[in-house]
């Protein structure tokens, strides 16, 4: 383990895709760190783990879980948590993050980040699960704000207050996904800048940027979908600049998970983010 790989640098990283392995390994790139999805590296061996070993010699790595189902009604899946711990113990990544969402129910995994009502019952459950994760892994995790498409009539907290309370109770950090803020604010008619203004930036360990697709609901209202399949739009760049000005410079990730582009296009997004990030005084 190289010492300089123990923390995410305040620089720009990318969500790792195996198609880009040689581009990243060439070293001739503005990409300063990579994020992997934990669930793709839970096999026993083979090419995925070999690539991960090479990456980890080269760059700091963030492990991003997509299957822990922290918001699930049931207890965390003990087998899955064990696999995650195995990966984290081996890799000693610079960061570990998961989502404020649920994805498994009664032993079935549904491969989507499903929404939660912001109530006291959810808060207690999520905090219990985060405590369990942090105790098991022996490290602090970051929790990511979701993209919302609808609201729960039963919610009694706003999202920022809900996240703030989780941080207070569990000591976890936050991963602030700027695209998710824009998507949720548009879909739920909230003010994205106000969301950023009230966000507990001291707890933020990482920012995410990504593309979304556009649709409409049955009433003609805009419905943005967090698809990670296209370029980041200008209003999200603007919100990112605002976030940096408000919360200070933070390690920033470009996420592009579907219709993965050729390397130069992804690198272009990295450069755009780095130009903004480097202008912010530490």
């Amino acid at each position: 383990m190289l010492d300089q790989h123990k923390f995410l640098p305040t620089a720009v990283g990318v969500g790792y895709k195996s198609a880009h392995f040689s581009n990243i390994m060439s070293g001739n790139t503005p990409v300063k760190w990579v994020e992997i999805h934990a669930e793709n590296y839970m096999g026993a061996g083979g090419r995925p783990l070999a690539q991960l070993r090479s990456l980890y010699e080269k760059l700091p790595i963030s492990v991003h879980g997509v299957g822990l189902s922290i918001g699930g009604e049931r207890d965390l899946d003990a087998d899955h948590l064990k696999r995650l711990k195995h990966l984290i113990d081996w890799l000693e990544p610079a960061s570990f993050s998961e989502h404020l969402a649920w994805s498994t129910h009664d032993g079935g995994f549904y491969n989507d980040l499903l929404p939660l009502p912001y109530t006291d019952a959810t808060l207690n459950r999520v905090c219990d699960h985060i405590d369990h994760v942090q105790e098991t892994l022996g490290r602090r995790m970051l929790l990511e704000n979701p993209s919302s498409y609808l609201a729960f009539a039963e919610s009694t907290y706003g999202e920022v207050d809900f996240l703030r309370e989780i941080v207070k109770r569990t000591g976890c950090g936050l991963l602030l996904d700027v695209n998710n803020v824009f998507v949720s604010a548009t879909n739920l008619r909230l003010d994205a800048f106000e969301y950023i203004d009230h966000f507990p930036h001291d707890a933020v360990g990482e920012l995410h940027l990504g593309g979304h697709s556009e649709d409409e609901d049955e009433n003609g209202a805009p419905l943005l979908i967090d698809s990670h399949g296209q370029k980041i739009v200008d209003p999200v760049w603007h919100l990112y600049t605002y976030t940096l000005a408000t919360g200070g410079p933070k390690p920033t990730l470009i996420e592009w998970d579907t219709d993965v582009p050729e390397w130069p296009e992804l690198e272009g997004e990295v450069i755009r983010a780095a130009e903004r990030l480097e202008k912010v005084p530490a």
């Binding site: 669930e39 793709n40 839970m42 096999g43 995925p48 997509v66 299957g67 822990l68 189902s69 899946d77 087998d79 899955h80 696999r83 994805s103 498994t104 032993g107 079935g108 995994f109 549904y110 491969n111």
Partner: peptide
């Protein structure tokens, strides 16, 4: 549906 959050398998 997948019985575990591991789509590679």
């Amino acid at each position: 549906p997948p019985s575990a959050p591991r789509l590679p398998l």
